[in-house]
Amino acid sequence: MDASLKSSTDDSTDLAIRARADLITAVVLIALGLLVTYLSWTMPRLEARRIHPATIPGLVPIMLGVLLTLCGGLLGLRSWRIEAPGGWQGLVALFGTQQTRRVLAVLALALVYTLVLVGWLPFWAASMIFIFGFIVLFEVYLTDTPVALWRSVLWALAIALAGGGGIYLAFARIFLVRLP
């Protein structure tokens, strides 16, 4: 009973947060829709090439721009009408949770690996460092049930060597695919 009550209040906060997040998205979508409409309106109509005016390149984009603005507007209206007590606070609080920290950590690792390590180091080395760092970070630090550091390091080393090396061997040597 208690659990079901708790989950139903969780659901309603979720709904409230989403309604407010939708409102922000709606504004972004309307802006994007208007931008697309403007860019398509000003897109060259190739008059010099005497193409039929009904076949201008901007025809479909302009329709999509208008439709996106319209849908964004409807979404905004819909979420404005939903009563969402505590929606804004919930949305702000969402950014301080452990879950958000985990997502940001994955994102940071992925960006560093893709934008910095790959290209700077050989692909296999970059991959091994990334895999090692990822496993240790999530097994020891960003978790509710941490594993002993030495255990995690050993596992991470093994997987990094096997994973990074294995992918390199499988793709570059067996399937003859070029790697970054």
């Binding site: 994955v106 690792l109 991959s127 990334f130 895999i131 496993i135 097994e139 997987i159 994973g163 793709f171």
Partner: peptide
């Protein structure tokens, strides 16, 4: 998943 997802991301890049 902690041990798997890093390898999957490398595969995504490849």
């Amino acid at each position: 998943r902690e041990r798997l997802m890093a390898v999957i991301y490398v595969l995504c890049v490849v």
